[in-house]
Simulated scan of single mutants.
Amino acid sequence: MTKLVQVAVAILMKPDGEYLLASRPNGKGWAGWWEFPGGKIESGETPEHALIRESQEELGVTPMQIQPWIKRRYDYPATHDAEAKTVLLHFFFVHAWQGELTAREGQQFAWQHPRKLNVSPVLPANAPIMQALSLPPIYAISNVQEMGETAFLRALKKQLDQGLQLLQVRESQLDSAALATLSEQILELCAPYDCRSLLNGTPEQALQLGYQGVHLNSQRLLALTQKPDHLLVGASCHDAEQLQQAQALQLDFALLSPVLPTQSHPEATGLGWEKFGEMLNGLEIPVYALGGMQPEHLAQALSCGARGIATQRMAWFSA
C-alpha cells in the first residue's frame, strides 16, 4: 500500500505577484526539479507549524503573514532515487516573513512571474498550482445587457488600463451574429493587455469565436465528461456536488455563488462567508466568490481560501 505523506508548502509572494521556487537539492528524490519550498508535516504537528518550521530550516526565514489556500493530492511513481508515495500538499501563501532568504540545503532559488515561468523541470504536483497562480484576484463578468454596448466597451477599456486580466463574456440575450460582432470588439480590445477572455457558452462556440477560454454554467458542468482541450475552463457552482464535479474534471477554476445577496437576485439567501469557507476546505481547484461582491470583500474572500472575487456590476460601474 502506497504511503500518504502530508506536506506543508509555502508560496512566498512579493507585492508585485512574483513567487519563489526552489530546486530540489542533491541527495533528495527528484533532485534538480523545481518546487515550492516546504516539507513533511510531522506527527502531532499542525500544517501551520510545519510550514513555519520548514521555512526556518530550508529558507532561513520565519513566515509572519500566512494565508491557507488549496490542498492537492498527488501520486508519485517510484523512480531510481525515490519510492512511490501519495502526497497531500497543504498550500499556504506567505505574504510577509522575517529574515533573509538563505539556501540552507544548497538549493537554488528563482522568483517567478505567474504568467512567465522560466525554470524547468517542475515537480508534477506543483504544475497545476502555477496555473492557478496565473489567475488574477478579480474576475469580471460582462454587462452589456444592462449598460448597452457603447458604455460597456468604454468601461472595459478603462478597466483594462487599470490592470484587468480575466473577463467572462456572458450575454445570452444576443443572437449568434450579434455575439460574434461583440466578441470581435472585446477580443480586439483585450489583446494588447494580455487579458484572457472566456465565453459563457459551449467550448465549440468559444473556440469558433477565438476566445482563450470557456465558462460553463452549472447545467453544462454537470453534463460534461471531460475537460475541453486548448481552453482555460471555468464553471459556475452553487453547491458541493457541482464543486466536486469541477474538481473531478480538473477544471482551471470555479465560481461559487451566491455568497451575499445580489442586486439581480435580492430574494436569494447568500451562503455567507463561513459556509463559503467551509465549502472550499479541501478543494484542489481555485475558486472565486460571486454574489454581492465589492472591492472591500476581496480580503475576506482570500482569507476563506478563495483565489479572488468575481463581479458583474462592481467592475463596470466603478469604472
Score class of each variant (00 low, 15 high):
Gly234Ile: 02
Ile285Glu: 03
Ser55Trp: 08
Ser264His: 07
Tyr19Val: 09
Gln173Trp: 12
Leu133Gln: 11
Gln245Glu: 12
Ala223Trp: 00
Gln145Leu: 04
Ser120Thr: 06
Glu146Thr: 11
Thr181Val: 12
Trp30Gln: 11
Ala301Phe: 11
Gln98Phe: 03
Thr86Trp: 04
Cys304Met: 15
Ala306Glu: 13
Ala248Val: 04
Asp229Thr: 14
Phe317Lys: 08
Thr86Asn: 09
Leu232Trp: 12
Leu88Cys: 05
Val233Pro: 12
Gln67Asn: 06
Leu222Asn: 14
Leu164Tyr: 06
Leu255Trp: 01
Glu146Trp: 02
His265Asp: 03
Arg104Val: 04
Leu255Asp: 03
Glu100Asn: 10
Gly38Cys: 10
Lys158Asn: 13
Trp34Glu: 05
Ser257Leu: 07
Val259Met: 10
Lys71Gln: 15
Ala82Cys: 09
Arg154Thr: 15
Asn200Ala: 14
Tyr139Trp: 13
Trp30Asn: 14
Thr79Pro: 00
Ala177Asn: 12
Phe36Gly: 12
Gln6Asn: 15
Pro128Lys: 03
Leu187Glu: 07
Gly308His: 00
Ala254Ile: 02
Pro15Phe: 04
Leu101Ser: 08
Glu100Arg: 10
Glu267Trp: 08
Gln107Met: 14
His215Tyr: 11
Ala103His: 09
Lys3Asp: 15
Tyr76Val: 07
Gln242Gly: 04
Leu216Gln: 02
Asn281Pro: 01
Pro47Glu: 06
Phe91Asn: 00
Glu57Lys: 07
Glu296Lys: 12
Asn281Tyr: 11
Lys14Cys: 10
Ile11Phe: 00
Trp34Asp: 02
Ser120Met: 03
Met130Pro: 00
Gly27Pro: 06
Ile141Asn: 03
Leu260Phe: 02
Pro192Ile: 00
Phe91Ile: 01
Leu222His: 03
Gln208Tyr: 05
Asp239Gln: 09
Ser176Asn: 11
Thr150Ile: 07
Arg313Ser: 14
Val122Gln: 06
Ala151Val: 02
Gln205Thr: 08
Glu18Thr: 13
Gln165Tyr: 07
Leu260Met: 13
Asp252Thr: 05
Leu255Cys: 03
His265Phe: 05
Ala178Tyr: 06
Leu249Phe: 09
His238Asn: 01
His49Tyr: 07
Ser142Phe: 02
Met13Ile: 04
Gly27Leu: 00
Ile186Leu: 09
Pro136His: 04
Pro228Asp: 14
His90Tyr: 14
Leu135Lys: 00
Leu160His: 03
Thr150Trp: 01
Ser318Asp: 13
Ala235Leu: 01
Gln244Asn: 13
Ser183Lys: 08
Arg115Ala: 12
Gln108Ser: 15
Gln159Lys: 13
Cys190Thr: 15
Ala268Thr: 11
Ile309Asn: 05
Leu156Val: 09
Ser183Glu: 05
Met13His: 05
Ala103Leu: 09
Phe93Asp: 01
Lys227Trp: 10
Leu88Ala: 04
Ile309Val: 15
Leu271Ser: 04
Gln165Gly: 10
His113Ala: 14
Gln56Tyr: 08
Ala301Gln: 11
Leu12Lys: 02
Gln165Leu: 13
Pro137Cys: 02
Leu164Trp: 07
Ala96Thr: 01
Ala299Gln: 12
Ala180Phe: 03
Pro25Tyr: 09
Phe92Trp: 02
Lys116Leu: 08
Leu302Gly: 08
Met1Leu: 12
Asn126Met: 15
Gln205Arg: 10
Leu182Phe: 05
Gly29Tyr: 01
Pro25Ile: 03
Glu45Ser: 13
Ser23Glu: 06
Met64Asp: 00
Cys304Asp: 03
Arg196Phe: 11
Arg115Trp: 14
Pro37Arg: 10
Lys28Thr: 15
